[in-house]
């Protein structure tokens, strides 16, 4: 019995490792290619991964492309969006969850409606609207529409509802007003959900494509997902430079993941249950 089980266990272990290898090969290949010399003929697959290596591609990329600008833009937009999403969504979710006001049910319903409006389906009028407001080709134009989704509020409200009212009442008796309650009770207790939503907002915006594609006109405003195809479009003949720029775009987010691994894993289950 135990013997049989362990054989099965070893088999599953091998399958797990095999899956891992298959899933990671493209990423490893990408990174390996970024260290290859331009123009090298590859006669068998093994040579993709073996020396000689060079750092020349990184030098070339940083010298000839605006990858640093794009990266800073991606980072800037993603960070600002994350900060603002957290600020305005926690505020709104707090009001919906813990302030007793008329129309609170109505507002909740009104925000629920927003879950059904995907950006993809309103992209054309959104472009016209943003244009009227003078937002096309500005940082604000990249940022503001990314703040308008109501999903975060719905998730946070559900979470905040779970915070016991006793805590709020005792704070009120101590003379705290809503701002104090928000800052000193809700935010600390809502840490988990806030961090989770922050991480997902960050990843989502770091990778966002469709809206920036329309809203950013000048190269100085491109984010990485826009800049990469523009850059690669100029190199049809060799994969080395495109792979280098792909690596440059991917490594920071992978490091980010390694640092926040626990939170991300926790966060996904949270969004799954409440989503």
């Amino acid at each position: 019995m135990t013997n049989k089980k362990s054989i099965g266990g070893i088999l599953l272990e091998i399958v797990s490792i095999l899956c891992m290898v298959i899933i990671l090969i493209p990423v490893v290949w990408m990174i390996a290619m970024s260290f290859k010399t331009e123009g090298q003929q590859i006669s068998n697959t093994w040579q993709y991964f073996t020396p000689p290596y060079t750092l020349q591609n990184y030098v070339t990329i940083f010298q000839t492309s605006k990858v640093l600008t794009w990266m800073m833009n991606s980072l800037f937009v993603a960070l600002i969006v994350t900060a603002l999403v957290i600020t305005i969504s926690t505020m709104a979710a707090f009001a919906l969850a813990k302030i007793r006001f008329r129309y609170s049910k109505f507002m909740y319903f009104f925000f629920l409606l927003g879950l059904m409006v995907p950006t993809e389906a309103t992209i054309v009028p959104l472009f016209v609207t943003a244009n009227r407001l003078g937002l096309i080709d500005t940082y604000l134009g990249l940022i503001l529409p990314a703040l308008a989704g109501s999903m975060n509020i719905i998730i946070m409200r559900a979470f905040f509802m779970g915070i016991p009212n006793d805590l709020i009442e005792s704070a009120t008796i101590d003379g705290a007003n809503e701002l104090h309650i928000f800052l000193q009770v809700i935010l600390p207790l809502g840490r988990t959900v806030i961090v989770t939503i922050a991480i997902f907002t960050f990843i989502g915006n770091w990778n966002s494509y469709l809206w920036p594609y329309l809203a950013a006109m000048s190269e100085d405003l491109f984010t990485l997902p826009l800049g990469i195809p523009t850059f690669i479009g100029q190199y049809t003949q060799d994969k080395v430079l495109p792979m280098t720029i792909n690596t440059i775009a991917s490594v920071p987010i992978i490091i980010f993941f390694i640092v926040f691994e626990k939170q991300i894993v926790k966060g996904i289950s949270l969004s799954g249950i409440k989503g």
Binding site: M91, A95, F101, M107, G114, L126, P145, A148, S150, I153
Partner: peptide, 22 residues
Amino acid sequence: DLVALVFLLPFTVLYMVFTIYP
């Protein structure tokens, strides 16, 4: 109502402009 309005206002404005209005 007033306090709730203050807390809801920033999001609601953005939501109206960029989600509902389009």
